[in-house]
């Protein structure tokens, strides 16, 4: 009997602090699997952002840096410019990337910075207890949109992939999801492709991963997957938005 499935080497053998059913765990594993399969653990440097996944520096076996909220793409730029031969990735949530870190995100893409951004979109601020995020959907109830997000005074959710795909520097921009085994397989392919895009020096790569937040959505983990499919997927269509 041979092992067909086990913990990837690039993922530390420690319990994850994420809430039960939170799909951050799946995404961490996919990133680690991609690093293992591309055999780049020794030359990878990851940048953790601020949010639930801030502790990702405890979960990846490669060198890690923890960046100020929203600044991971800038920190990653600094690392990549010093070690262009390294593979540099950031792991960011929607608040980090599309709210406070919008400028860093857009300009890293515009520069065609050869880094890979793993962007986890769960339409809410998880770590701080469920506030409205830039990707919170219209009508979605959160701690800071208690009557449901309304465009009139809270504006519209941001479609990051569509936005970044208009930038020349973007070489690979894809949106995936981890709500089903099929989509998990596609997500892994996209993450691996993003890393390959970086390694081949084509430019900026980002994978937006639709993800759940059972605790702050107020749903069970299984219900959360249904909610994601029914509500997030229509507004955030999966697919490849840029591929050089």
């Amino acid at each position: 009997m041979t092992k067909v499935f086990e913990k990837p080497k690039a993922l530390c053998d420690v319990p994850l602090h994420y809430c039960p059913g939170c799909t951050h765990g799946i995404i961490h594993r996919l990133v680690a699997e991609a690093i293992d399969e591309l055999d780049i653990l020794g030359k990878t440097v990851g940048v953790a952002s601020v949010g639930c996944s801030v502790f990702s520096y405890n979960y990846f076996e490669c060198d890690m840096q923890q960046a100020a909220h929203g600044r991971a793409p800038a920190v990653a730029t600094g690392i990549k410019r010093v070690h262009p031969g390294n593979v540099v990735f950031t792991y960011q949530g929607d608040g980090d990337l599309a709210a406070i870190g919008t400028a860093e995100m857009v300009h890293a893409a515009a520069r065609g910075e050869k880094i890979t951004v793993i962007f986890v979109n769960n339409a809410i601020y998880g770590m701080t207890g469920g506030q409205m995020a830039p990707t919170t959907l219209l009508g979605q109830v959160t701690q800071t949109s208690p009557y449901g997000r309304n465009a009139e005074n809270q504006g519209y959710p941001i479609k990051v992939c569509e936005m970044l795909s208009t930038l020349e520097g973007s070489a690979y921009i894809a949106r995936v999801s981890v709500d089903s085994v099929k989509n998990i397989r596609n997500a892994k392919k996209a993450i691996k492709k993003a890393f390959e895009t970086q390694i081949e020096g084509k430019g900026f790569s980002l994978v937006e991963v639709l993800s759940t937040c059972p605790t702050n959505w107020g749903l069970s983990p299984v219900e959360s997957l249904d909610w994601l499919r029914a509500n997030m997927m229509p507004f955030y269509p999966l697919g490849i938005y840029k591929e050089k």
Binding site: M1, T2, K3, V4, F5, E6, K7, L11, P15, L16, Y18, G21, C22, T23, H24, G25, I26, R29, V178, S180, V181, I184, R185
Partner: peptide
């Protein structure tokens, strides 16, 4: 049947599969 679907969707790397 060792398809590992359970392991793939597990967020906490609880499951190992052999075939």
């Amino acid at each position: 049947i060792g398809c590992a679907f359970c392991a793939m969707i597990c967020p906490d790397v609880v499951i190992e599969v052999e075939k």
